[in-house]
Computed example of a mutant assay.
Amino acid sequence: MSIRTLFVGVSLAVLGTAGASAADLIIPTTPQPIYESAGFSWEGLYAGVRAGGQFVGTNQYGNLGAGASITQGVIGGAVGVNFLPMDPFLLGAEVTGDYVWGNNLSTGEFFANLRAGAVVTDSVLVYAIGGVGVQTGPNNAGSVGLYQLGGGVEVAVTDAITVRGEVVGQGDFSDAGGADSFFETTKATVGVFYHF
């Protein structure tokens, strides 16, 4: 065997090995995203303010006289907590306090509520709300027990702030001669909430 044959054989072996190892370096991969957003977190404490209107029908509602048929302004706030026992269902508890004024009458309304809803998308919550509360009377007329049922939609606009629209039907626990409607008033509010 000559040196020349040995040199050619070694050269071919080296070139074959280099080609094989170069082929092993090219591995097709799919790049992973650097950051994946987890979406809005609906769980936890929140607080906010709201404003709207209350539309009282002709039946007596709380300390407002029968045949009132009035529209009043509403401004107030709410504090609550949400839980997600299983995705997408939400349960929560909330307390609200509202100052209601108009037609030379002003009252305060305070409710303890339960909420149940569904997270439709990461940033949209649809819910039902129900609760019991009390209305303080105008001119220290005393307090009246109330209830409310309704629903709303809440939309996340940042990673901590939501905007909510809510409509509830309200009534009192008094029986005005059997002619009392179940819902004697409607309250519609829009609010801004901060989630901690």
Rank of each mutant, 00 (worst) to 15 (best):
V120R: 06
V124F: 13
A128E: 08
G165T: 03
A116Q: 06
N139I: 02
A128K: 00
G142S: 05
G117W: 03
G165E: 01
V157H: 08
V134T: 14
P138H: 12
V132S: 01
N139G: 03
V167S: 01
G145Y: 09
G169A: 09
G169T: 02
T158F: 03
F173Y: 11
S123E: 03
V153M: 05
T162D: 07
A116P: 12
A128Q: 03
D175F: 10
T136H: 06
V167L: 05
V132Y: 09
A160Y: 10
G142W: 06
Q135P: 08
A118Y: 05
L114W: 10
F173C: 02
V120N: 08
V155M: 04
G130Y: 10
V119L: 13
S143Q: 05
V132F: 13
Y127D: 01
G130A: 15
G131Q: 11
D159V: 12
V167I: 07
V126M: 15
G169E: 08
A160F: 07
S143K: 06
G145A: 15
R164Q: 11
G152W: 12
V124L: 15
L114P: 05
T136M: 07
V119Y: 09
V126Y: 15
V144S: 06
T121Q: 10
N139P: 00
G130Q: 13
Q135W: 14
N139E: 07
N140Y: 05
P138Y: 13
L125V: 05
V167N: 00
D172A: 07
G171I: 07
V119W: 11
Q135L: 14
S174Q: 08
G131L: 11
T162K: 04
G165H: 09
S143N: 11
Q148A: 13
A116F: 14
R164I: 12
G165S: 08
V134I: 15
G117T: 04
P138Q: 13
D175K: 12
L146Y: 10
E166V: 03
T162L: 06
V155N: 00
G151V: 09
V157T: 14
V126W: 15
T136G: 08
V157C: 11
A118C: 05
G130R: 15
A156N: 05
G171S: 05
G137Q: 05
V163Y: 11
G117Q: 00
E154A: 14
V144M: 06
T158H: 04
A141K: 11
S143D: 08
V132H: 00
E154I: 10
V155F: 03
A128C: 04
P138A: 11
G130M: 14
G169C: 04
Y147Q: 04
G142M: 04
G151M: 01
V119G: 14
T162S: 12
S123I: 02
L146H: 11
G171D: 06
G171Y: 07
V157W: 07
Q170H: 10
V157A: 14
L114H: 07
Q148F: 03
S143W: 07
V168F: 00
T162G: 07
L149N: 13
N139K: 10
V134R: 14
V132I: 13
A160R: 14
L146W: 12
F173T: 09
